[in-house]
Design a protein around this nucleic acid. Structure first.
Length: 383
DNA sequence: GACACGTGGGT
DNA sequence: TACCCAAGTGT
């Protein structure tokens, strides 16, 4: 039994609550009404009060882009996708290469493949309307536990328990949960379910995420500004930065490979091929590369080239992926053709529309800077 | 549960 | 520099 003088968490799993249920969510929503970030896909509280509805297509598109990706990075891509494809039907009708090309640089390219597949499913099997329930949303490609809950709450006012990385941090601090993630995820979700109000569940979820992004930050959280600081166990103990506890990370091995940038005489076109649909950089374009081996003495010399030419070494690029570091030896050659190798030549003007991952842009930039330079009509005047 | 899966920015 | 981190999902 709690005393009135001891502020307690709202409805921890299995506990009674003698503080008004929703006291925390109420304080958080008041904070959100004043401090919500204006984001391109977001309907602000005042707009919502005036009758504006969130567009499920917009919410879905932004949520998929935001998976493991910063808000700052997503903004430009979100605007571009909405400009190219204003509706889910338009996106569904787009060629896959065009979608992959528009996604190039955002990373985690399976998201783009699933995005396109999801758009097609919504257009063909759901009459262009996203399902309004978590269960329905979960059947769609690229929509997992988090994204289904987020879309249900934000676009359809379903009181779903939304748990992302921000909310994990907020809640583990609030309750001093020291079970390492992801094992502690179920407990976090139970707490979130207990906090989620039936009114404004979407704003509640967005408020929790904004709080994590701007106040309850990984380092040096601004507890003095936090609407939930009262009764926050980590705050009371002064151990905020110890949460969330995460499982130890594995070391990142090094791999080696080679890339071959063939430049066609005359128009400066670059020889590209399409990577396999699955696996690293799946479905994206590249100058031919060797396998990326663990051994330093792997075949990375000119002898590993896709076709004979006067290959010269341009240098190497280092690129760090999620689970390994890659060093790519870059070779270049001026050629007349590709001697029957699988692939195609793309002119510098055409490269902007090609699905080139950042790593491959690095390799091309090193071997043939002119290929990726802004084309003359678009180049900004030097001052 | 473990692992594969990108990239850019911050400290 | 070498980490850490970001509105996770699929297998």
């Amino acid at each position: 039994m709690r005393t009135a003088s001891r502020p307690a968490p709202d409805e921890p799993p299995g506990a009674s609550h003698d503080e008004a249920p929703g006291a925390r969510s109420g304080r958080l929503l008041e904070w959100y009404d004043r401090h919500a970030r204006a984001l391109p896909w977001r309907v602000l509280p005042a707009e919502r009060a005036a009758g504006k509805q969130a567009d499920p297509y917009h919410i879905w598109l932004s949520e998929v882009m935001l998976q493991q990706t910063t808000v700052a990075t997503v903004k430009a891509y979100y605007e571009k996708f909405l400009r190219l494809w204003p509706t889910v039907e338009a996106l569904a009708s787009a060629p896959a290469e065009t979608v992959m090309g528009a996604w190039a640089g955002l990373g985690y390219y399976a998201r783009a493949r699933n995005l396109h597949a999801c758009a097609k499913a919504v257009a063909a099997e759901h009459k262009g309307r996203f399902p309004a329930t978590e269960t329905g949303l979960r059947t769609l490609p690229g929509i997992g536990e988090y994204t289904a809950a987020a879309i249900a709450a934000i676009a359809f006012d379903v009181p779903a328990a939304v748990v992302d990385g921000n909310i994990e941090r907020v809640v583990t601090r609030l309750h001093a949960i020291d079970t390492p993630l992801p094992a502690g995820k179920a407990l976090v979700k139970a707490h979130v379910a207990g906090m989620t109000p039936s009114r404004r569940p979407g704003d509640f979820a967005q408020a929790m995420m904004d709080l994590g992004a701007t106040i309850c930050t990984p380092r040096r959280p601004a507890c003095v500004l936090c609407p939930l600081s009262e009764g926050c166990l980590a705050r009371i103990a002064g151990t905020m930065e110890l949460y969330p506890v995460k499982a130890a990370k594995k070391p990142k091995p090094a791999r080696q490979g080679a890339a071959f940038v063939a430049v066609r005489a005359g128009d400066g076109a670059i020889f590209l091929r399409r990577r396999p649909e699955t696996g690293m950089l799946g479905g994206m374009d590249e100058p031919p590369t060797t396998e990326w081996g663990v051994r330093r003495d792997g075949a990375t010399g000119a002898g590993a080239a896709p076709f004979p030419a006067a290959w010269t070494r341009a240098g190497s690029v280092v690129h760090v992926f999620t689970h390994f570091q890659l060093t790519l030896e870059v070779w270049r050659a001026d050629v007349a053709d590709a001697a029957g190798a699988e692939g195609r030549f793309v002119t510098p003007a055409g490269l902007v529309a090609v699905a080139l991952p950042t790593l491959m842009k690095k390799a091309i930039e090193l071997a043939e800077p002119a290929a990726l330079a802004p084309s003359p009509p678009q180049r900004k005047r030097q001052i």
